[in-house]
Nucleic acid binder design. Structure first.
Lengths: 159, 159
DNA sequence: TATGAAACGAATACCAA
DNA sequence: TTGGTATTCGTTTCATA
């Protein structure tokens, strides 16, 4: 995989704001040709650096109950638990972490009833879960995917 | 805002997989006209139900250190702290929660050095933060934005 | 269904190793 | 001279009225 250079990052920054910005418009903004934009985007897509998606508003879809759940798992069963959780449609994110919880997941529900059902019925039936700390989202301040920064190394190992 | 119906959800499901699926292709898959697809997408965009974005792979951009940080804040200063955190480019997500932590954030860094710098320099200077539990992501199992489900109410208030 | 805009494929030009 | 990248242009596909 070729290294991502400054021009790639500039293209990504524009697409972060609007995933539908035409190649011609990107080319114009960056003062390069449309072909360059196209070939770079093809390469970045091919290398899996990014993909075109849509971001839906969970609340507008009726998913009013948003949670982050920290889980502790039995030694040796963490991966299996993580994989089972990943199958569930309510679960958006699953990661293994160091820290107070072995696994942290993010899950969305249509109602508190559905959340309770999830914890009592779904989680309780997964072998290897020792405990679950449910945090209920009261307010969201930021949920951005614009994390492409101009330069890779802001603070290097000596900083 | 008009209610989101089954057909809207089907359109969103297709776009979740590929945000650039042509209207004609969506129309063909759902056996409806292209005009219907277009008018529905316009309405959904207008209502803020979804937006076209790109999803970049943080690791491929060099953001190898991914964290979830739980914060406790001084009474009365939570909102101010949340807003300050939202300004920081390293921070992707900020939410207020009920549970063990008042605020939960997700942040990405280029290196452990940058993470340490963030905690010691950035966080420590924000007034109102009482404590921070840093969880370091060791492995990611799922990070999906495909949370549009076929039907809104899987389990209703009586279920 | 027609019109303009955007995306695409392929040939060519450029540049640096 | 060669491999990689940028440009250009003709064609096709798409969005839109």
């Amino acid at each position: 995989m070729k290294r991502i250079d400054h021009l790639d990052r500039q293209i990504l920054q524009i697409l972060q704001d609007d995933g539908r910005t035409p190649y011609t418009e990107i080319a114009h903004q960056l003062k390069i040709s449309e072909g360059t934009v196209r070939s770079r985007i093809s390469r970045l897509l091919h290398d899996g650096v990014f993909e075109f998606v849509i971001r839906t508003d969970p609340v507008k879809l009726g998913l009013n109950v948003q949670t982050i759940i920290g889980l502790n798992t039995k030694l040796g069963l963490q991966q299996q638990v993580a994989e089972e959780l990943s199958q569930l449609p309510e679960v958006r994110f699953v990661g293994a972490f160091s820290g107070k919880h072995d696994l942290i997941i993010q899950a969305f529900f249509y109602s508190n009833t559905e959340l309770i059902h999830f914890v009592n019925e779904r989680l309780s039936r997964i072998e290897g879960i020792l405990g679950a700390d449910v945090s209920l989202e009261l307010r969201q301040y930021k949920d951005s995917f614009s994390y492409v920064r101009e330069d890779e190394v802001a603070i290097n190992e000596k900083g």
